[in-house]
Structures are given as C-alpha cells and as structure tokens.
C-alpha cells in the first residue's frame, strides 16, 4: 500500500470501529451522516420547489389572462372547507414538530402519540379534500370528464353561490375559461394531495418502526427529515389556499 493514503487520526479510526448500529458503513461519524442526509433533504425540497414552480407559472399566466373566469371559478370553492383544511394542516405541522422533538428527547410514547396524531390529521385533510372534489363532480366542474359552464353563464342557476357573491354572468368565451381554472385547481391540489398521500404512507411506516423503538435511541434523522418534508407540503398548501380560494379577496 502506498503511503499516499495516510491513516486518518486515531479518534476517527476508532469511531469507525465502534460506531452505533444505525451508522451506515460509508460514513465516518454519525454527525456526518446526519449532516449529509439532512442536506440531501433540503436539496430534494429545492427540486420540489422547482417542480411546483412550473405549475405556479402556468397558473399566474392563465390567471392574468382570464382573471374574471378565475374569480368566479374561485367562488365555487368553499372557503369554509378551505380554512378548515388550512387549520388541519397547520395543526399537523405542529404535531409533526412535536414528534421530532419527542424523538430528540427519546420519548417513545410521546413520539408515537404525535406521529399518530399527524397521521390522523393528514387523513382528515384528505377526507375534507375528497368532500370538496366530490362536490365539484356533483356540480359538473371536473374538466375533461364532466364539465358544464352553466354556473358561470347563468350564475342564478347556482342559488347557493349566487346568494353569497351575486356574480354577473360571464360572456361565453370567458365562461369557457373557467375550465382552465378548474384544470389548474385539480392539477395543483391533486399534486399536493399526491404528496400528502406519500407523506401519510411514510408516516405509517414510521409509526411501525417507532413502536420498535427505532427513533428513540438517539438516531432521529429520519423523523427530522420527514418533518422537513411534511412542513414543505404544508407550505405548498399555504400558497395554494389564497391562490385558489381567495382570488378576489386580497
């Protein structure tokens, strides 16, 4: 062996031989492992920002062109359910943060409780979302599959929404652009919901591992990184909510 690969100092070499079971073989120290995976997660979230960025660009252009259609389209969304869902998500971000904290404090019971709560809140979010989507289906506001512009050509035909907003009828060409609004609504909330579903899946996996005590022995990297993901998905919603629900209100 050539001298070029001089031995690293003694402590490093020692750490290599006596590392904890969760340290992967190719890392020198646990903190290196933590740093690396944490950094990777941030980078991944950056790619996610770019991914949603494309959708937001399309949204901004369409909204700029077809503003009246976007306004009346947004009137079809229930601000009540939207607010409820926002609250649920913010709450779940809080419980997730508490989960990370419990893992850091090595409290297994608390970790399980908070992860479970986050899991349930995630499901509640999806439940509310599906109620909203179902309503769109009932009112024929699903572009491509079942769509009718009646609510916009003749707002009075939609008494509930009309009573609240007293929208003026849209010209036919503008009314047809509400389909663009709902297309983007479904694309954006759908993409967000897909991230929620993946998140809930991983949460389920984490709960099972947590029961076996995987995260409460000092190695909570996975919980922390998942927490970052969960907060990110939450933040996406914080943008989606005003952009889709509150168009004419700010």
């Amino acid at each position: 062996m050539s001298d070029s690969t001089a031995t690293a100092n003694g402590t490093l070499a020692e750490a290599h031989h006596e590392h904890p079971p969760y340290q992967r073989h190719h890392f020198e120290t646990v903190s290196q492992q933590f740093d690396a995976t944490n950094f990777a997660m941030w980078l991944f979230l950056l790619t996610e920002v770019m991914f949603f960025g494309g959708l937001f660009t399309a949204y901004l252009i369409m909204r700029n062109w077809y503003y009246p259609a976007f306004v009346e389209g947004s009137h079809q969304l229930s601000i009540f359910w939207g607010t409820a869902n926002t609250t649920v998500l913010i709450l779940s971000s809080f419980t997730m943060a508490m989960g990370v904290w419990s893992a850091q404090m090595k409290r297994k019971g608390m970790l399980l409780f908070f992860l479970g709560l986050t899991f349930v809140l995630g499901l509640v979010f999806l439940g509310i979302k599906s109620i909203e989507w179902h309503e769109k289906w009932e009112k024929s506001h699903v572009p491509g599959l079942r769509y009718s512009g009646q609510s916009f050509l003749n707002p009075a035909s939609d008494p509930e929404v009309y009573a609240e907003y007293h929208d003026k009828p849209l010209a036919p060409d503008m009314a047809s652009k509400t389909e663009q609004y709902f297309f983007l609504y479904f694309a954006m909330t759908g993409m967000h919901a897909l991230h929620m579903v993946i998140g809930i899946g991983i949460l389920g996996f984490m709960i099972i591992r947590a029961k076996a005590g995987a995260y409460t022995s000092g190695h909570y990297t996975f919980v922390e990184n998942f927490g970052l993901y969960w907060h990110f998905v939450d933040i996406i919603w914080i943008f989606l909510f005003p952009l889709l629900y509150l168009i004419s209100r700010y």
Binding site: W65, Y66, P68, L170, A171, D173, M174
Partner: peptide, 10 residues
C-alpha cells in the same frame, strides 16, 4: 383586432 373578434370579453 384578431383578439377582439375571437376573445371579445377580454
């Protein structure tokens, strides 16, 4: 003119 004919409401 083209826009006004095809997309009058804008």
């Amino acid at each position: 003119l083209r826009q006004a004919i095809l997309n009058p409401s804008q």
